[in-house]
Design a protein around this nucleic acid. Structure first.
Length: 488
RNA sequence: GGGUCGAUAGCUCAAUCGGUAGAGCAGUUGCCUUUUAAGCAAUUGGUUCUGGGUUCGAGUCCCAGUCGGCCUACCA
């Protein structure tokens, strides 16, 4: 149309800008707000009546982004995409009128349009809409990535997730499922009388785990705060406060390396139930995960990247930490051996343990490197050494271990749970032992709270990102976090 | 933080030994009233990530940087 269009024909942005200007000149609003669809794409497809006469098929109106355009002279097939999926539209010159059709031909891939029309089935059987009216709703000024390969450049996928979501069905479905998983968790817990709460992100002592926190500054108070590294200590205060069943789904922040399994901000579920213990938490987490697999995700088989199927419905293995370690090193007396002997053996096994490590750290290296990555089927690892966690109850008949489990699935630590330590004096002692290291500041306020009396309780944590990795068969934590951390 | 591989058109990718940077899609123009990565014909489009260096000549070799992938380290 414009005489200078040929000058800019190589520049897709300029071409679209020109089309936008032409529309405005004609008095067309390229960003109108008055289009109301009656159906999502999937609902429209479902509204098709099998066997009904063509003229009896329902009329619908839908809206979405143009993702396919196939022009054939005086008719074209296009596809639009909305949250629910994609639907095909058949637009004919004699269906919408000559002037309208001329404008329709000027639409670009990526434009958001609304369409009214009657459902029909093409000769290849695809349920489509025969357009009687259309409206440009939002003009798109930038070209979309290539239609067949989609957007594959990982950096762009993460930095411009909107493009990834437009172009890649896998990605769209994965985040859809993440959302369903999170709401499935809420539903499951609410049905069991758990209250959802929110606790502070800014904390004066970042407790509940041993990780390096981020530091931030409050201007008017003129003091630094830490961003939380765990939800634990505030939720336990609520147990003291009389909330017997509480949970929080919240962001934690750890100032550590970024990897395939680590993002500096990640989402945790923590659950606390009074008058329960780690055994009770086993039942809770098993029921919860099975609920997610069957009811939320429809019972689809879940595989590891290597093809191994994870069996969520069978019996879940239970194994003691020490038994697993002794078995792996081939020595039933491993835990009574000297550190020198342990170091020699771990070297033989190809591990690089440092001489200045504590005894339990050497054993834990065996667990972390040689055992956990191979626990593919759901496994509760129980009776961990007490040095690994100061917040759990000591096992009654073995004061070297604690009443906890670590649920491992797919070679990942998915959910730890404890019988929570509620004796304020023992808790103080455990903290003091750790305070000697660099790990944890004493949270005096928390200890004082415990002195009012905390009911016996089971507590459970679950990394939401990791369970989503597992259940959506992702390979990288970045594929389940909409906007993962990247440099600058 | 360390190691290693990578960055070429809007997107997905080529480019032999260091010798004129190409293709498909998208775009533009024309044809096409049931297409399915629609088809046919023509055609536009490049600071080869940035900055240095070697060379008659650098997308290609060297150095530094930026960003990213993978591995690794830190992460009860």
């Amino acid at each position: 149309m414009s005489s200078n269009l040929s000058d800019i024909s190589h520049d897709q942005l300029a071409v679209r800008r020109q089309k936008l200007a032409d529309l405005r000149e004609k008095g067309v609003d390229p960003f109108r707000t008055d289009f109301q669809p009656t159906h999502f794409s999937s609902e429209a497809v479902a509204a098709f009546v099998d066997g009904a006469e063509p003229e009896e098929q329902p009329a619908v109106s839908v809206a979405g982004r143009l993702v396919v355009i196939r022009k054939m002279g005086k008719a074209q097939f296009v596809k639009i995409q909305d949250q629910a999926g994609i639907i095909q539209i058949y637009v004919r010159l004699d269906g919408i009128g000559a002037e309208e059709y001329a404008d329709f031909k000027k639409l670009d891939l990526g434009d958001i349009i609304g369409v009214e029309g009657q459902l029909f089935q093409t000769k290849t059987g695809e349920i489509s809409i025969r357009a009687t009216k259309y409206a440009l709703v939002s003009k798109s000024l930038r070209p979309l990535p290539e239609k067949f390969h989609g957007l594959t450049d990982t950096e762009q996928k993460y930095r411009q997730r909107h493009l990834d979501l437009i172009m890649n069905k896998d990605s769209r479905e994965r985040f859809f499922n993440r959302s369903r998983i999170v709401s499935g968790i809420r539903r499951y817990l609410e049905e069991r009388s758990f209250l959802e709460v929110e606790t502070p992100v800014f904390q004066t002592i970042a407790g509940g785990a041993a990780a390096k926190p981020f530091v931030t500054h409050h201007n008017s108070l003129d003091r630094d705060f830490f961003m939380r590294i765990s939800l634990e200590l505030y939720l336990k205060r609520l147990l003291v406060g009389g909330f017997d069943r509480v949970f929080e789904i919240g962001r934690n922040f750890r100032n550590e390396g970024i990897s395939r399994r680590h993002n500096p901000e990640f989402t945790m579920l923590e659950v606390y139930q009074a008058y329960s213990d780690y055994r009770g938490m086993m039942e809770l987490i098993q029921g919860l995960i099975r609920h997610l697999v069957t009811d939320v995700l429809g019972g689809k088989e879940i595989k590891m990247p290597n093809g191994e199927v994870i069996d969520f419905m069978g019996e879940w293995r239970e194994a003691k930490y020490k038994d697993l370690v002794c078995e792996k090193v081939g020595d039933p007396d491993w835990f009574s051996k000297s550190k020198e002997e342990k170091l020699a053996k771990t070297k033989e096994l190809g591990l690089d343990c440092q001489p200045d490590w504590e005894d339990y750290e050497v054993s834990n290296e065996v667990f972390g490197k040689l055992i956990e990555p191979y626990l593919i089927q759901p496994t509760f690892v129980t009776h961990l050494p007490k040095e690994l966690c100061p917040l759990a109850k000591i096992t009654k008949d073995d004061d070297s271990t604690i009443d906890v489990f670590e649920l491992c699935i797919g070679g990942m630590e998915i959910a730890p749970a404890y019988s929570e330590q509620n004796d304020p004096d023992v808790q103080r002692e455990m903290f003091e032992k750790q305070a000697g290291e660099e790990t944890q500041d004493m949270d005096e306020d928390f200890l004082e709270t415990l002195e009012y009396g905390m009911p016996p309780a089971g507590g459970l944590g679950m990394g939401i990102d990791r369970i989503v990795i597992l259940l959506t068969e992702a390979e990288n934590i970045r594929d389940v976090i909409l906007y993962p951390q990247l440099r600058s």
